[in-house]
Amino acid sequence: MQTRATPATATPLDRFNAAPAEEATRTLLACLNSPAWAHRLTAHRPYPDLTALLAAADEAAYDLTPEDLAEALTAETPPALPEGTYAAAHTALSAAHAAYASRFGHAFVISLATVSPDETLNHVLTAIRSRLSNDLDEERLVAAEELRRLARTRLSTTLR
């Protein structure tokens, strides 16, 4: 006989699985602003564990249409720099972000989950400069992959 988690012992994933659809969708939209992605994940609940949810999230992210991807990208903001970053670095990064947004029509997105705070500035500047040379189709693929990684990290953080 399977036991149910009581409210006092329910995990964040248990609460997500049991939440009303609107609440689950809001939780997901905070991780990736794609209603198609959020509704798909909400509709396939319950998830037996976080690994299964993350796999489903990855699959749903890979299936985003160009319109879904554009919608998700419009909600993204550039990554924050660590405290104590020099003003000159902010200026250089602001200029790079403006050039990127002008070229591609959306904010530069990058997952920094595996980057140490000391490496963040160099990692972001190197990536944005490199990606500015991408053509539109190539950058759409790179941005989609970065969004998938961001969503995965946000979902893990939210439901862990």
Results as ranks from 00 to 15, higher is better:
residue 120 T to G: 03
residue 67 E to V: 06
residue 45 R to V: 11
residue 5 A to Y: 09
residue 132 L to T: 09
residue 24 A to V: 02
residue 58 D to P: 03
residue 61 A to N: 03
residue 14 D to F: 07
residue 84 G to K: 09
residue 9 T to D: 12
residue 74 T to D: 12
residue 136 L to H: 14
residue 69 L to D: 00
residue 150 L to R: 11
residue 90 H to N: 08
residue 86 Y to Q: 13
residue 49 D to Y: 08
residue 134 N to A: 14
residue 23 E to K: 09
residue 114 T to N: 13
residue 96 A to L: 15
residue 31 C to G: 08
residue 46 P to H: 09
residue 79 P to K: 09
residue 9 T to W: 04
residue 80 A to E: 13
residue 71 E to P: 00
residue 154 R to P: 06
residue 38 A to T: 07
residue 147 L to T: 05
residue 127 A to M: 13
residue 63 D to W: 06
residue 102 S to N: 11
residue 34 S to V: 00
residue 144 A to C: 13
residue 135 D to E: 14
residue 69 L to K: 08
residue 159 L to D: 01
residue 43 A to C: 08
residue 23 E to Q: 15
residue 68 D to I: 00
residue 64 L to K: 01
residue 19 A to Q: 02
residue 127 A to N: 10
residue 19 A to W: 01
residue 159 L to Y: 01
residue 70 A to G: 01
residue 108 F to H: 08
residue 55 A to L: 14
residue 79 P to Y: 04
residue 132 L to I: 05
residue 4 R to P: 03
residue 92 A to C: 13
residue 84 G to V: 08
residue 114 T to F: 13
residue 1 M to N: 11
residue 158 T to L: 13
residue 29 L to P: 09
residue 24 A to P: 07
residue 3 T to E: 12
residue 112 L to P: 02
residue 17 N to S: 09
residue 68 D to P: 04
residue 79 P to H: 02
residue 87 A to L: 13
residue 34 S to G: 07
residue 11 T to K: 10
residue 34 S to M: 02
residue 7 P to V: 07
residue 80 A to C: 01
residue 12 P to F: 04
residue 120 T to W: 00
residue 26 R to G: 11
residue 143 A to P: 05
residue 63 D to Y: 00
residue 106 H to Q: 04
residue 148 R to D: 01
residue 12 P to E: 07
residue 76 E to M: 13
residue 47 Y to R: 13
residue 124 V to T: 08
residue 69 L to W: 05
residue 158 T to F: 07
residue 46 P to G: 11
residue 25 T to N: 06
residue 51 T to A: 15
residue 51 T to G: 11
residue 36 A to M: 09
residue 51 T to C: 02
residue 150 L to F: 05
residue 92 A to F: 03
residue 43 A to T: 07
residue 112 L to Y: 05
residue 24 A to S: 11
residue 158 T to G: 00
residue 90 H to D: 04
residue 137 D to S: 14
residue 64 L to P: 00
residue 47 Y to E: 09
residue 122 N to A: 15
residue 110 I to W: 02
residue 71 E to T: 15
residue 22 E to I: 11
residue 98 A to H: 14
residue 59 E to Y: 04
residue 51 T to E: 12
residue 62 Y to K: 10
residue 19 A to Y: 01
residue 151 A to K: 05
residue 62 Y to A: 10
residue 2 Q to C: 09
residue 52 A to G: 04
residue 1 M to Q: 11
residue 22 E to H: 13
residue 29 L to C: 12
residue 66 P to M: 09
residue 9 T to N: 11
residue 136 L to D: 14
residue 14 D to H: 15
residue 56 A to I: 02
residue 35 P to N: 04
residue 46 P to I: 10
residue 98 A to Y: 03
residue 49 D to L: 05
residue 113 A to L: 12
residue 157 T to L: 05
residue 19 A to S: 11
residue 109 V to Q: 00
residue 91 T to Y: 00
residue 152 R to A: 07
residue 76 E to F: 03
residue 153 T to A: 06
residue 135 D to K: 10
residue 145 E to M: 09
residue 11 T to Y: 12
residue 154 R to K: 15
residue 155 L to S: 04
residue 18 A to T: 08
residue 148 R to T: 14
residue 159 L to A: 01
residue 154 R to Y: 03
residue 43 A to H: 10
residue 30 A to G: 15
residue 38 A to I: 10
residue 93 L to C: 12
residue 45 R to C: 07
residue 152 R to P: 00
residue 14 D to W: 02
residue 30 A to I: 01
residue 151 A to H: 06
